[in-house]
Design a protein around this nucleic acid. Sequence first.
DNA 1: CTTGCAATTGATAATCACTATCAGTATCAA
DNA 2: TTGATACTGATAGTGATTATCAATTGCAAG
Lengths: 171, 171
Amino acid sequence: MLNTDKNIQITLPIHQTSETIKKNERFQIDDFKKMIRSMGLKITDQRLLIMQCLHDGDKKSGDRHVTAQELYEKVSVKDSSVGFATVYRFLRDLAAHELVTEVRMGGQASRYELTPKEHHDHLTCTKCGKICEFENQKIEDLQAEVARHYGFQLTGHVLELFGICPNCQKS
Amino acid sequence: MLNTDKNIQITLPIHQTSETIKKNERFQIDDFKKMIRSMGLKITDQRLLIMQCLHDGDKKSGDRHVTAQELYEKVSVKDSSVGFATVYRFLRDLAAHELVTEVRMGGQASRYELTPKEHHDHLTCTKCGKICEFENQKIEDLQAEVARHYGFQLTGHVLELFGICPNCQKS
DNA sequence: CTTGCAATTGATAATCACTATCAGTATCAA
DNA sequence: TTGATACTGATAGTGATTATCAATTGCAAG
């Protein structure tokens, strides 16, 4: 059986004080509820938990881009009764409403992240894997122009620059 | 049984004169053989046929970006004994050696094209999978500027625009 | 040319990511 | 509280791609 709203904090790491937890989590949960409602969906414990896991991301690696499977596993740790169909379904809904951003790269499964408030692209070092996020309005404008030229209604883009970072250029 | 090297031109469109065919095809075949050898693979009739079909592309739509299935069907028309495993396998080898470029996007199957000499980016329809190629020097310049700004030595990039094509906007 | 053997092939089964189905369950407006 | 309706989890199904393996073939060495 799932936790109800008022005791969802028991799924959080033990070392945090319950004070901190309540304050932080309460804020996020309300936020999540708004997002779910904005899609015209009902609020369920499963969906809140999925959003929480999406939001937390992979704390170890610091990577917010998660596959559906990985997300399902994260969710399972906190509540093993949640089925993966629910995770996939909800992720699809979130992506359709652009509340999460889907990135699919050759061969691999799709990766998802909560759509960041400010858009950014990536500049990745091919040696050390370091990622710089950047934002360039001129490039965005030109992209829109290109799409318009071909009569496309632009819905998204992937811009990844690859290079050698300053550090790796030395060695 | 597969055609041998010396009569492979029988698979070409009938309306071309055999003179034209021999000249054009001879050139391409030698070219293809070089590419296959450069990967350290053996030259087989199947592989030559696959490359030929890849090169010819979809003459009707003018789209060179083909899925593995579509390519398999093209190949099958010319020689129905070629298995689809062979097509997939060879396509994977070609992609690994960057002789073909793979474009994969949300939900749909991968599309492949012989890696073009001149660089271009893609504008992909998320509904039907149609791909438009474009080239925009201003965007390239801005990318270089961004990289310079972060002290990166730029080595490559991926720019994929996603949207709804004019056709799919109607329905 | 033969020949030998490793590379290649095609058929098939398996896998992988994802989706549809459906009976049971939970949400929430009234 | 309640009932229509949305949601859920289990399961089976799909479509693209990959692994397996016995039979075949390319090609280099003789």
